[in-house]
Computed example of a mutant assay.
Amino acid sequence: MGKLTREDKYLSPATQFCDYMKNTQQRTPKGLVFIQEWGSLRHSANIAFICLNLAELGVKSAEYREFAKEQIHYALGAGARSYVVGYGENPPQRPRHRASSCPPRPSPCKRQNGLYNPGPNYYTLYGALVGGPGSQDDYVDDRDDYVRNEVAIDYNAGFQGALAALQKLKINMQLP
């Protein structure tokens, strides 16, 4: 509604939200905005997307863009590893995703050679954002840890939206 009407009754609560997330919300030692263990990167990417939308409307534009860039850079690898399958430095190789962890046909997908295979997934699920680290930036690439290694559409939605917004703004996406 804020985009459509530009009315303060919509922009003000969104601004308060972004200010809180940027300035007050718990963060990991490496700077990820941390809401909860399950899908921590999903939350930070969605927050980045919301704040980028506000920045597009002229609300604290430089501040919110920089904040969003920090959050997206973390996911891409600024925190010492990438959390995007098939991208960057030390990306996840064992996301919890049945189709990518099963062997090629005609081999059957059974417990021992599918989700419970300790090796990397048979297929690279390029671009999938895994759940992410814990509150201390702790992460193990283990598909049995579904809290941190699950991939889902809602994990990627805000992430892809934030990437598109940063690209549209031509904000440098090179990692430090």
Rank of each mutant, 00 (worst) to 15 (best):
L125W: 02
G114K: 12
G86I: 11
D142I: 00
Q71V: 09
R111V: 13
S101I: 01
V147D: 04
Y123F: 14
A128M: 11
H97K: 07
Y116C: 13
P104R: 12
E63H: 06
D137G: 10
C51L: 07
I50H: 02
L57C: 12
E63T: 15
S61W: 04
G132Q: 11
P118L: 11
P118V: 12
R42P: 00
L52Y: 05
G134F: 00
Y146A: 03
I50F: 02
G86D: 08
S101G: 02
P106G: 04
P91Y: 01
N117W: 02
A128P: 03
R81V: 01
P108M: 08
A62M: 11
Y74H: 00
Y116E: 14
A48K: 13
V130N: 07
G119T: 05
D137H: 13
F49P: 01
A78K: 06
A128Q: 05
P120G: 06
P103L: 05
Y64C: 09
C102L: 11
G132N: 03
A55N: 09
V140G: 05
Y139D: 00
R148D: 00
G79H: 13
A99E: 12
H73Q: 08
L115A: 10
F49L: 01
L129N: 09
D145Q: 00
Y139T: 03
K110M: 09
G79D: 10
R98S: 13
V59F: 11
N53Q: 10
N117I: 03
R98K: 15
A68I: 03
A128H: 07
E89D: 14
P120H: 09
S135A: 15
H43M: 02
G127N: 06
C51H: 05
F67V: 08
E89W: 03
E89L: 13
N113M: 04
D141I: 07
T124A: 12
D141P: 14
D141K: 08
Q136P: 06
L76Q: 06
D142R: 12
R96A: 08
S44I: 09
T124G: 04
Y64T: 03
N46G: 02
H97I: 04
N121Q: 08
D145M: 07
G86R: 11
R65T: 10
P106V: 05
S61A: 14
G88T: 14
R143E: 05
E70D: 10
L129A: 05
Y146M: 04
Y116D: 15
P106R: 13
A80T: 09
R98W: 11
P118A: 01
Y87G: 01
R94T: 13
V140Q: 02
R111A: 15
P91D: 04
E56H: 01
R98M: 13
V147K: 00
G119P: 00
G131T: 13
T124R: 15
A80P: 15
L115G: 14
Y126T: 08
Y122T: 13
L76C: 04
P103I: 01
V147Y: 07
Y74D: 02
Q112P: 04
I72T: 09
R96Q: 06
K60P: 07
D145S: 01
R42E: 01
P118F: 06
G132L: 07
L54A: 03
R65E: 10
P103V: 00
R81A: 11
L129V: 08
Q136S: 14
A128L: 06
V84K: 05
E63C: 06
N113V: 03
R143C: 03
E66H: 06
P92G: 06
